[in-house]
């Protein structure tokens, strides 16, 4: 799929900034930033990004709760969501996938390959769907 517009959701300002620079400068993507789940829902509805990169651990509304809301709304339910997590357990990754995320980006990520990693995960998901 064509990936041009990404919404990055993280409560840590530094990580938002680094993600932004990485996705813009290396990945040549248009990037929106959200610092909370609520903000993410608003931006997702307004901007319809090609993909959402969603931090798992956030105060108030965490990643899975935000994902549930995105999936519950017809406007946003088709936007592919990728989780970003500092957790490393395979089971956790499996669980995120079973919630409807199309992939998981592990923190710390490599800013030089972040956009490419997102593209690979989206492609892999598309192939799975095609089968």
């Amino acid at each position: 799929m064509l990936l041009e517009r990404v919404l990055l959701v993280d409560d840590e300002p530094d990580i938002r900034r680094i993600g932004q620079v990485s996705l813009q400068a290396v990945g040549r993507l248009k990037v929106w930033l959200a610092s909370s789940g609520a903000e993410a829902l608003e931006l997702a509805r307004a901007e319809k990004p090609d993909a959402i990169l969603l931090d798992v651990m956030m105060p108030e509304m965490d990643g899975p709760a935000c994902l549930a809301q995105l999936k519950a709304s017809p406007e946003t339910k088709d936007i592919p969501v990728l989780f970003m997590t500092a957790k490393v357990q395979t089971q956790e990754v499996e669980r995120y996938l079973s919630m409807g995320a199309v992939g998981v980006i592990r923190k710390p990520f490599d800013p030089m390959t972040l956009a490419q990693d997102i593209r690979s995960l989206l492609d892999a998901d598309e192939q799975r769907r095609a089968r």
Binding site: E12, D14, I15, I18, G19, V21, S22, A25, V26, A86, K107, P108, F109, D110, P111, M112
Partner: peptide, 12 residues
């Protein structure tokens, strides 16, 4: 969390 920022900034 801080390492993600450090690693990211250095990588860029």
């Amino acid at each position: 969390t801080p390492l993600t920022s450090i690693r990211g900034a250095l990588g860029l």
